[in-house]
Simulated assay, not measured.
Amino acid sequence: MNIKSLVSSLVAVVGVVLLCVRPAAADARSDRAAIADALTKLATSAANLGKAAKASDDRGARKKFAPAATELGDDLTALAKRLGKDIPIKSIATDAAAIEKDAGALVELADEAEDKEERKSLRSQAVLIQQGIAAARKSIGGVKEDGGGAAPTAPQRFTGRIFNDTDGDRCGISENLKFAISRDGQQVYVSPNMVFPGKNFSLVLEKGTYLVQLLDTTSTFKGQRTLDATKEGWIFKSGCVNED
């Protein structure tokens, strides 16, 4: 599997991961098992990304990014195994925080790739893995060894608008775009149709910060931005998508 073909599979994996790491209703043992399963899936994704980068023609991807991705996969596998043992959850949470930091470093290592498209692809996939790890770490921190815990409160929801403001004069090219929106590694929305330049649409989101990935008509990754849905009437603009 080459680097570019991993994008869609990683999006699917991270979506599954978030289903696995939602708080369980049974007990701490069930919670641990669900999170361990999620970490194992993330470990496989990181390992596959490392293999693809190692086989790349790009020296930066091969020499810098690939070893880090492979090591991250190994660390995730080890963490998943620790969850199955009688180890205090606080100790596991500490290890998870360190791995999340390593995942952030992997995102930055994507810039070592010399090829522009490969650099974008590596970064987008590393971000997805990082988000999945962040979600798993939060779930680890929420495990109650006694199975207790208060019922969650309903989250706030705000309506805003998403704009495709690519402009030929300002950006050099106008693009029809699809918007893939995720939060903590979970894909929460994908625009069903292409959004044409100058057009916009409304969307209701829970209060929080989201990652928006911009895709073209062939679902090729064109860039990513942060969306803050923190008040009613929030606005997100795509900006230019062919910049380095």
Rank of each mutant, 00 (worst) to 15 (best):
M1R: 14
I3P: 05
V13I: 15
V16K: 15
V16C: 04
V17M: 06
L18W: 00
L18I: 00
L19S: 14
C20V: 04
A26T: 15
A34I: 02
D37Q: 14
D37I: 07
T40C: 03
K41Q: 15
K41T: 03
A52W: 02
A53I: 13
A55G: 13
D58P: 03
R59P: 02
A61N: 03
P67I: 01
A69K: 11
L72T: 09
T77I: 00
S91K: 15
S91H: 12
T94Y: 02
A96Y: 07
A97I: 10
A98E: 12
E100W: 03
D102K: 15
A103W: 03
G104C: 08
L109Y: 11
E112K: 15
E112S: 13
E117N: 12
E118T: 14
Q125K: 14
A126G: 06
A126P: 02
Q130M: 13
A134P: 06
A136V: 03
S139E: 04
I140K: 03
V143T: 05
G147W: 00
G149Y: 00
A150T: 10
A150P: 06
P155L: 03
R157S: 11
F158D: 07
I162V: 15
D165T: 06
G168S: 11
R170H: 09
R170N: 12
S174I: 02
F179R: 00
F179V: 00
A180N: 06
I181Y: 01
R183P: 08
D184C: 09
V188E: 11
V190H: 01
V190S: 03
P192S: 07
M194P: 00
F196D: 04
G198C: 10
N200Y: 05
N200A: 10
S202Y: 02
V204A: 14
V204S: 14
L205I: 02
L205P: 01
V212G: 01
L214H: 01
L214Y: 02
L215A: 04
D216R: 12
T217I: 07
S219F: 06
Q224H: 14
R225A: 05
T226F: 06
L227V: 13
T230K: 15
F236W: 13
S238F: 00
C240H: 04
N242H: 14
E243K: 11
E243W: 09
D244L: 07
